[in-house]
């Protein structure tokens, strides 16, 4: 029982990060129908920059801010300079370009920082509080929950309560109609990519201290888990992405806890296959199934 409680909390904490990362994937999918396979690599790139700033200045938080703002910038630049030039007659084109970006970014990171693991420090203790002999959460876990909750809340407010959010949603659903109504659809797209990449970078900063550390490929496994989370949630649904993230986090935690860590990635892929076969529109889709 103790073990179950511990694994549950651990799973929710991981799941919160996957939720944030899945949310970033959903943001771009909704606006462009492209799964941004480069998101993990982009997040790692900004994390490297962030940790470099932290090392140079001695301030973790300055590096943290640089990483997230760097994500904002990198997302905007990626949309403006790369994705906008992609021929959108087939969605596959964008996906292939995103996969190419992964190779470019990881290659460049390897050249600059080397292909060894570098430590990624956490800003808070990762030692769990124990309540009644059961290890529950660490300070860092609480920070993860708080940060993800804040991001989700801000995104909800942005999309449902502000006119920019209304423009962004309209641009994603009906670009031509939105342009006829005076919406700068291209600008909204850039903003969407910027926000998504910033959320991705945040997720990277939250997950890297719990992984082996900084490495050009450090987010690959996280990407797979988060992509599964987004698909479980239906790719179109922000609520689904958050729920999917928590489901995948719990699954990973239970499987590694009870069956061993080596089985965990297989469990995630199995979940992906089962969902795609059984409910290709995701567990939270309202509309008909969509081919992924």
């Amino acid at each position: 029982m103790d073990r179950f409680v511990f694994l549950t909390f651990d799973g929710l904490s991981r799941g919160a990060v996957y939720a944030a990362f899945a949310l970033a994937l959903v943001l771009i999918w909704r606006a462009t129908r492209i799964v941004n396979f480069a998101q993990g690599a982009m997040a790692v790139a900004t994390a490297y920059v962030g940790y470099s700033v932290s090392a140079a200045t001695g301030s973790y938080w300055l590096g943290f801010a640089v990483a997230v703002l760097g994500g904002l910038l990198l997302g905007a630049v990626t949309e403006r300079v790369v994705m906008r030039l992609v021929d959108h007659s087939s969605h596959l084109n964008g996906v292939v370009v995103a996969l190419g970006l992964v190779l470019v970014i990881q290659g460049v990171l390897g050249m600059i920082y080397g292909n060894e693991f570098r430590p990624a420090e956490a800003p808070f203790s990762r030692e769990a509080f124990t309540v009644g002999g059961i290890a529950l959460l660490s300070r860092f876990d609480l920070f993860v929950f708080g940060a993800v909750f804040l991001v989700v809340a801000l995104l909800v407010v942005l999309f449902t309560r502000t006119s920019v959010g209304l423009r962004m949603r309209a641009s994603a659903f009906a670009p031509d109609v939105s342009r006829l109504l005076g919406v700068n659809v291209g600008g909204m797209l850039t903003l969407g990519w910027a926000l998504a990449a910033a959320v991705g970078s945040l997720a990277g900063m939250l997950v890297l201290p719990t992984e082996l550390g900084l490495h050009p490929n450090a987010m690959d496994i996280v990407f797979v888990s988060s992509f599964t989370a987004a698909v479980v949630g239906g790719l179109d649904s922000a609520v689904g992405a958050v729920a999917g993230g928590l489901i995948v986090g719990l699954l990973l935690s239970y499987v590694s806890g009870y069956l061993g860590a080596t089985v965990a990635p297989i469990a995630v892929l199995l979940l992906l296959v089962v969902v795609l076969l059984g409910r290709p529109g995701g567990l939270f889709s309202r509309s008909a199934a969509r081919a992924v």
Partner: peptide, 10 residues
């Protein structure tokens, strides 16, 4: 309401 507001956002 969102559709209608969209018409006047500019």
């Amino acid at each position: 309401d969102e559709n209608l507001r969209l018409g006047g956002l500019w």
